[in-house]
């Protein structure tokens, strides 16, 4: 399992892995917003957490469709499936999701404080947003695995995967952004939405890999 994790992280970071593309896309989205919204610093600070979350969400969706497709094209998925009984497939999917998160989404979380400065956010708001991103974004990878597994046989599945999983990611977005807002706006409680966000991640960590493994078993041809 550790070998699978290390291999996927290595593949994600090496040429063609697409981890850098995600950060560049995130940077592009966030950098464009102040130009579109205008130089109203208060407004930027207010919408900052939401924009960071939306940017991270969209950047996180990039490359998700390749999660299993690359393995399918070079035959590695077949060999993984053959070894699956001794090597539980749902566990393998979980490991692949964690590797994808580490290589492609964790850099977004790390970059988010810097991009928060573009949005004129307070240090507290930046910290809270980075924390909610850290806790919430794994859910994007777990939900995305289901879409990636369902669309594994489709050659142009990229956009389809994003559209299919977007409704499921909405709750993560809602609670992530509301926790980040609550940290800045005083009367709102921070802990309840944050704990729900953590619960969502844990919930999808179980459901997502199991559903994706089922889809991969039936989608193999």
């Amino acid at each position: 399992m550790i070998a699978l994790f290390l291999r996927d992280v290595k593949l994600g970071l090496r040429a063609g892995g697409g981890a850098l593309v995600g950060i560049l896309f995130f940077l592009a989205v966030i950098a464009v917003v102040p130009f579109g919204v205008g130089p109203d610093l208060n407004l930027l600070a207010r919408i900052g957490p939401a924009i960071l979350w939306i940017g991270a969400l969209l950047a996180g969706l990039l490359g998700l469709d390749r999660l299993f497709q690359a393995d399918r094209e070079d035959g590695a998925l077949d060999v993984l499936l053959v070894h699956a009984p001794g090597f539980n497939l749902a566990l393998a999917v979980l490991v692949k999701c964690l590797a994808h998160w580490t290589a492609a989404i964790l850099p977004l979380v790390v970059a988010s404080p810097l991009l928060g400065l573009f949005m004129n956010m307070t240090p507290q708001g930046i910290g809270a947003t980075a924390l909610t991103l850290l806790v919430g974004t794994p859910a994007i990878a777990f939900i995305g695995a289901v879409g990636a597994a369902v669309a594994v046989a489709l050659p142009r599945g990229g956009l389809l995967v994003s559209v299919v999983i977007l409704p499921l990611v909405i709750p993560v977005l809602i609670f992530g952004v509301s926790a980040a807002y609550a940290a800045v706006n005083d009367p709102d409680p921070f802990l309840p939405p944050f704990l729900i966000l953590a619960a969502l991640t844990l919930f999808f960590a179980v459901i997502g890999p199991a559903a994706a493994a089922l889809a991969l078993h039936h989608g193999s041809d």
């Binding site: 291999r7 290595k10 593949l11 090496r14 040429a15 063609g16 892995g17 094209e73 070079d74 035959g75 590695a76 077949d78 060999v79 053959v82 070894h83 699956a84 009984p85 001794g86």
Partner: peptide, 19 residues
């Protein structure tokens, strides 16, 4: 069982070009 006893060599090589 069968799965634990076999090696499968498919028409493609199951290797990563980047590694």
């Amino acid at each position: 069982d069968v799965a634990s006893a076999l090696h499968f060599l498919g028409p493609v090589n199951a290797m990563k070009a980047a590694l």
